[in-house]
Design a protein around this nucleic acid. Structure first.
Lengths: 336, 336
DNA sequence: ATGAAAGCGCTAACAG
DNA sequence: CTGTTAGCGCTTTCAT
């Protein structure tokens, strides 16, 4: 620990060869004599040698590293997307450096700058908070793939998202099929994701000729937002029999609000979430939800980025994945 | 993006000075003439220059980076600890590289090796799965701080953990005060953390003279583990009136199991969790729990590591933080 | 206050 | 198959 780390020179000296040969051997080249290879391996082993990643990337002029920014680690939805991202990135021979902005655009931007300093070869942004022009600027330096954020993205940026319009449609369809008409929406706030889900709600309600029954209430993507929104909604309008909440975490808050107001779920009130996090399936929560293909979102995002790194001038791709309704115990027929 | 990134030489040329001066100016040295400084700043700006972290660490022979390994990102308990770690590490002028082993010891080890290749100056392990001898070996190369894992740690390794023995004691005390005697424990499995909590349970029960009422059931630290464990327990022994579950996530599973078996919580059965994750406070969960000072655990861990990096030969420190009982709606008087 | 020169540890041609 | 020679982009003496 106190002593200097062994370098490739130390290994070369000990093995009695040149350092280039050590480099070759360590890279697994076929044209190193078995004897030399063995000597080198032994020397490296004995010395506890590990190559210096900084020196390596400097010499190779590439870092084999991609930066990944997740909005927050507190919502498990990101852990699930990250599973996909990390596994695929590693499969393709790159490393991930993971950072969060804790939902704060400034921190987020600072983190992105850090990643850029690290000379990441690409950037994956999972539900970022940056504006289009900044992203565009960054995209000029390094390929970017955005996961989950349909709007706010400029040219040259690859994108994979879930089809939220269709997803919220699934939710509304399900409720309508159960006989509900007074279906309200508790929103996720003002982000582009929240807006898209709101738009999906409006479109679906209209498609069912239910525009006169539309009712929206401001909320956030947090437990508390869902709780407050639902309380306000139910107090102001007791005719509501079903609520589409902007995400699962907020829907869990909605469940609590309903319970406090004496509305039994699903008998008196149906509640439906969005995301499909593992949590929603916990038996004590048992939330009907629209599941995004979370891991696949991550895998696809990683593929997009790695493809672009391999071929930077390829045209930008926009992929939309299909959501899936998971019916659980928080929804039931109206007037049940 | 296609064009080569500007280097310090480009900046120097453009500003009409030597690259050493650029280096000095960028480091904020006072002995750079204001005029040169301005020219350099302007040139850097125009070129969109950012210094290459790899080259820098190579020249400086330090990376200003610490590696952080978290057991998994799926349990939000780690997000909360990480908040503390990251904020303090950054405050002290270092960067974090965050990785997970997804609860798999092999993946975990591979990740640690990666971090070592990156030449991190220190390692923070949050609930790792490595054995003592491997850790010891790594600790010879780089300072290590372990968060949350009381046992399994050798010499020269700093440590901060929650006092789980006392924590489980708090839980048992609370239940005893409510009149419970048949207090069972659903364990977290075989990890050292799980063992410590089990030991805490046994000790507390004995302290109350309740050794004859002790009842333990194998579980895991997951929702499912809590669910299965609780089902098995309740089916085998209906006299149990209260359960201490190994962590919050598993306790949420326990809640569901109780409900399915027709035991109403807290009326017929008290359930208490461990960790104090935000989730446990959600109104629809409302779990009584023993809260660890999660953020503080992270901050303290970061401090320990940074202190040791600054002074490698200081004696190892072991810090234990005090847990705190949070009484919510999942516990109530016995025979209520 | 500024520049020249010497590396940091490694890879990558290029000769043999 | 193996060694020599150049850097990669930056910091850091050491002169001036």
């Amino acid at each position: 620990m106190t002593t200097r780390r062994p370098t490739i020179n130390d290994v070369a000296e000990r093995a009695g060869v040149s350092k280039s040969l050590v480099s070759l051997a360590l890279a697994g080249s076929a044209k190193v004599a078995p004897a030399s290879r063995a000597a080198i391996q032994a020397a490296a082993e004995e010395l506890g040698y590990r190559r210096n990643a900084a020196a390596r990337s400097l010499a190779e002029r590439r870092t084999r590293t991609v930066g990944v920014l997740a909005l927050t680690l507190h919502n498990p939805v990101f852990a699930e997307i990250l599973d996909g991202v990390q596994s695929r990135v590693r499969e393709r021979g790159y490393h991930c450096v993971l950072v969060t902005g804790d939902s704060d655009p400034l921190v987020e931007r600072h983190q992105i700058e850090q990643l850029l300093d690290l000379q990441v070869e690409g950037l994956i942004l999972i539900a970022h908070r940056q504006d289009r022009s900044y992203l565009q600027e960054v995209a000029e330096q390094v390929p970017i793939t955005v996961i989950t954020q349909p709007a706010e993205v400029g040219a040259h940026i690859d994108l994979v998202s879930n089809d939220d319009i269709a997803g919220v449609g699934l939710a509304v369809d399900h409720l309508v099929a159960l006989g509900h008409r007074h279906i309200a929406h508790v929103t996720g706030g003002t982000s582009s994701v929240a807006n898209t889900r709101l738009a999906g709600y409006r479109r679906a309600m209209q498609a069912h000729g239910l525009q006169d029954c539309m009712r929206t209430q401001d909320g956030t993507f947090s437990d508390d937002g869902g709780y407050r929104g639902t309380r306000a909604l139910l107090s102001a309008d007791p005719t509501v029999t079903a609520i589409v909440v902007a995400n699962d975490i907020a829907a869990i808050g909605a469940l609590a609000a309903a319970q406090e107001l004496g509305r039994s779920v699903p008998k008196d009130l149906s509640v439906i979430g969005y995301d499909g996090i593992a949590l929603s399936g916990l038996r004590s929560i048992d939330l009907t939800t629209v599941a995004q293909p979370l891991t696949e979102l991550g895998i696809t995002g990683a593929d997009l980025l790695m493809d672009r790194i391999a071929e930077p001038s390829a045209p930008a791709r926009r992929i939309e994945l299909a959501p899936q309704l998971i019916v659980r115990g928080s929804t039931a027929p109206a007037n049940g």
